[in-house]
């Protein structure tokens, strides 16, 4: 299990209704069902991932997140989760608004473009960074909206979004004191627990 997944589990209360956007093979939802008895769905675009979800007994809906979630009722989920996909959407700001319309709270994680390795890569090599958490070349990357932690927090402020909790992990997906002191430089992946003010 990816460590950002096990980290966010503690932010989920038992029996919550959860929506996992870009749920992949359903690992997280299966885990949350087991640990927290959650109900709800995953949404995913890739057919092979959907088939794996079904094998795992995870309810999953094929959906392109760029097509919007207008049909989902306001506040119909306790928590909407989006791990490592926000940077792949066309209009992340609007999607974030939608997420907090349909969910009472949200958990968002993404790779930090402000991490020292990417700064170093671009600054010294003059090329778009290829790192462990951003492993693609500029022309084939699905990560079209590169974000730093600072950028994300500015967006939250501008959109009236309150950050309830955040956790920043380094490339071992561990939380440690260094990462906590210099999150935007040493944090590789951030997890934000947010709600609408």
């Amino acid at each position: 299990m990816r460590s950002d997944m096990s980290l966010l589990t503690r932010w989920i209360q038992p029996n919550e209704r959860v929506l996992d956007l870009g749920c992949g093979d359903g690992e997280l939802l299966a885990h949350l069902k087991r640990e927290k008895n959650v109900s709800g769905y995953g949404m995913e675009i890739d057919t092979q991932n959907i088939l794996k979800c079904v094998e795992r007994q995870v309810d999953v809906i094929q959906q392109d997140l760029n097509e919007g979630l207008a049909y989902v009722d306001d506040q119909s989920f306790d928590t909407v989760i989006m791990t490592q996909s926000l940077q792949q959407t066309r209009e992340p700001d609007l999607l974030l608004e939608e997420i907090l319309r349909i969910g009472k709270r949200a958990i968002i994680s993404f790779p930090n473009f402000g991490h020292w390795t990417t700064r170093f890569y671009l600054g010294f090599r003059g090329k778009m960074p290829i790192t462990r958490s951003l492993p693609f070349r500029w022309y084939d990357t699905p990560n079209i909206r590169l974000i730093t932690f600072k950028d994300f927090e500015i967006l939250c402020r501008e959109h009236g979004i309150r950050i309830l909790k955040k956790t920043v992990v380094d490339n071992e997906h561990a939380e440690n004191w260094k990462v906590k002191m210099f999150p935007n430089i040493l944090g590789e992946i951030a997890l934000y627990h947010i709600e609408k003010i």
């Binding site: 109900s39 057919t47 959907i50 309810d59 809906i61 049909y71 989902v72 119909s76």
Partner: peptide, 18 residues
């Protein structure tokens, strides 16, 4: 059909087969 099932909070899985 899927949208209606989601709105009524029913367990549903949906796939569009290519």
């Amino acid at each position: 059909i899927v949208d209606a099932l989601v709105r009524s909070q029913k367990p549903v899985t949906y796939l569009e087969v290519d």
